[in-house]
Structure formats: C-alpha cells, structure tokens
Amino acid sequence: MRHVLHTADEVTVRSLTQRATAPGVWLKTFVAPEALESWLAPGWRLAGGPGFLMAVSLEVVPDSPAELVPDGYRVSAWTRGGVTRVLVRSLDGAFAARGQVAVTGPTAVVDQVETDPAHQRRGLGRLVMRRLTDAAARQGATAGVLGATPEGRALYEGVGWRVLAPLTGAVRGPDSADA
C-alpha cells in the first residue's frame, strides 16, 4: 500500500503512521526529509533517498536535429492502457534508455525514466523526455509532473523542468515489536 499526501503536517503524518502497522506500507509527501523523519511513528524509516517534485508546461514542438535519434540506436514507442512508453535500444538490441507517461486530463505524469550507464551522456535521456512530453502534449496535456532523484534532476532541469518541492518517502518496516 502507498499513501501520497499532497499536503502534510505533523498531526496527519503521525496519525497515519500510527494506524498503518503492516510492513511494506509506503508514505510519500512533499516535505523535507528531516521534517518527515521527526513526524514518523515508531517502526517507520525514511526510504528511497531524497527526491524532488518537478513540473513543466507542455506543448508540441516539431522535431529538431538535436532531438533526432543518435547513430547506433533505434527508438520504439507505443501506448497501451493509457500509458505511452518509449524504449531506446542499441542496434544490437541491448537496452539503452526508457521512460513512460500517463495523461490524466490536463496533467501528464512521467515515470521510470532510465538510461543504462553504458549509454549515458549520448542524449538518450533528452530524447526519451522529448518523445514522452510530445506524446503527452498531443494527447491534450498542458502540464507534466514527475518525481526526480538527485541523478535525474540534472537531466530534467536541462530540458526545462523546475523543482516545485522536496519529495520524501518513508516505509513501515518490521521491528522488534513485529517479530
């Protein structure tokens, strides 16, 4: 189970984390890690590392030479169940990069953007982001949101996204009282 709180305060977090006692329950919210950690009930811990809620305005932009597929790669994209996926492979078929986006009315949520370390610094992350945001804009979305890791933040800022808030996660784990 996952709980995502768009607004959080000590009373709400403490109440929720005291009630949710099963191991593996997650909580994500838009507060700094040190604040969330001080509000958690016993048995909970920060997890997932630091993160950032990021956003961008979306519009369809025609392809430019900078966004063409680099030599040695091929791109495929498909939409199923309302989720558009972009996959980049090397010419020998090896995984290089990927990402997905789901449009929910005027907002698109980008998720699971990843570039294999052996293929980084070749513009593949930018290519994936461009294809995802173009697909979302063509489906009518006017804003994009995502949760970024510190590593991903540089890519997203480089393609125009901005940080709106910290994104912090916590998980309920087994403790001595659960044994």
Score class of each variant (00 low, 15 high):
residue 96 A to K: 07
residue 96 A to R: 04
residue 88 V to C: 03
residue 112 Q to T: 11
residue 114 E to S: 14
residue 92 D to P: 02
residue 89 R to K: 14
residue 94 A to P: 00
residue 131 R to M: 02
residue 75 V to L: 15
residue 79 T to P: 01
residue 115 T to G: 03
residue 89 R to D: 01
residue 123 G to F: 08
residue 127 L to T: 02
residue 106 P to Q: 04
residue 89 R to M: 05
residue 75 V to R: 11
residue 87 L to A: 08
residue 72 G to H: 04
residue 120 Q to R: 15
residue 112 Q to V: 11
residue 72 G to A: 12
residue 98 R to M: 15
residue 101 V to H: 06
residue 79 T to W: 09
residue 123 G to E: 13
residue 68 L to Y: 03
residue 136 A to N: 02
residue 105 G to I: 02
residue 83 V to S: 11
residue 76 S to K: 14
residue 119 H to G: 04
residue 111 D to Y: 08
residue 135 A to P: 00
residue 86 V to P: 00
residue 108 A to F: 03
residue 102 A to V: 08
residue 121 R to D: 11
residue 134 D to N: 09
residue 95 F to Q: 09
residue 134 D to K: 14
residue 92 D to G: 05
residue 125 G to Y: 10
residue 84 T to S: 14
residue 102 A to R: 15
residue 116 D to H: 15
residue 112 Q to N: 14
residue 93 G to Q: 04
residue 131 R to A: 09
residue 86 V to I: 14
residue 80 R to G: 08
residue 68 L to K: 07
residue 71 D to E: 15
residue 104 T to S: 12
residue 69 V to F: 02
residue 133 T to Q: 12
residue 93 G to H: 07
residue 76 S to T: 15
residue 101 V to T: 10
residue 90 S to I: 01
residue 87 L to H: 11
residue 68 L to Q: 10
residue 101 V to Q: 06
residue 136 A to G: 04
residue 97 A to F: 04
residue 132 L to P: 00
residue 127 L to W: 07
residue 79 T to N: 10
residue 120 Q to F: 02
residue 89 R to Y: 03
residue 84 T to M: 10
residue 69 V to C: 11
residue 134 D to Y: 01
residue 82 G to I: 10
residue 100 Q to P: 00
residue 118 A to C: 05
residue 98 R to F: 01
residue 101 V to M: 13
residue 74 R to T: 08
residue 71 D to C: 06
residue 89 R to S: 07
residue 104 T to V: 08
residue 135 A to S: 09
residue 83 V to K: 13
residue 120 Q to V: 10
residue 105 G to F: 02
residue 71 D to Q: 15
residue 98 R to T: 12
residue 84 T to Q: 05
residue 103 V to W: 05
residue 112 Q to F: 12
residue 73 Y to A: 07
residue 79 T to A: 13
residue 106 P to E: 09
residue 106 P to H: 06
residue 90 S to D: 09
residue 116 D to R: 13
residue 72 G to M: 08
residue 112 Q to C: 06
residue 110 V to H: 11
residue 104 T to K: 13
residue 97 A to S: 09
residue 122 R to L: 13
residue 130 R to I: 01
residue 66 A to G: 04
residue 105 G to C: 02
residue 124 L to M: 11
residue 120 Q to T: 15
residue 94 A to R: 15
residue 119 H to P: 03
residue 135 A to K: 11
residue 87 L to C: 03
residue 113 V to C: 02
residue 71 D to Y: 08
residue 94 A to Q: 15
residue 89 R to F: 01
residue 108 A to M: 07
residue 124 L to S: 05
residue 66 A to E: 15
residue 118 A to Y: 00
residue 112 Q to S: 14
residue 85 R to N: 03
residue 134 D to T: 14
residue 126 R to T: 13
residue 110 V to E: 05
residue 100 Q to D: 09
residue 127 L to S: 05
residue 87 L to R: 13
residue 107 T to M: 03
residue 104 T to L: 14
residue 113 V to Q: 05
residue 87 L to F: 04
residue 112 Q to A: 15
residue 109 V to M: 12
residue 94 A to H: 13
residue 87 L to S: 07
residue 86 V to R: 09
residue 125 G to H: 06
residue 131 R to C: 01
residue 83 V to C: 10
residue 111 D to K: 10
residue 131 R to H: 08
residue 91 L to D: 12
residue 121 R to P: 00
residue 135 A to Y: 04
residue 130 R to W: 09
residue 116 D to E: 14
residue 91 L to P: 00
residue 117 P to Q: 11
residue 107 T to E: 07
residue 83 V to F: 01
residue 82 G to R: 08
residue 82 G to T: 13
residue 111 D to G: 08
residue 76 S to F: 12
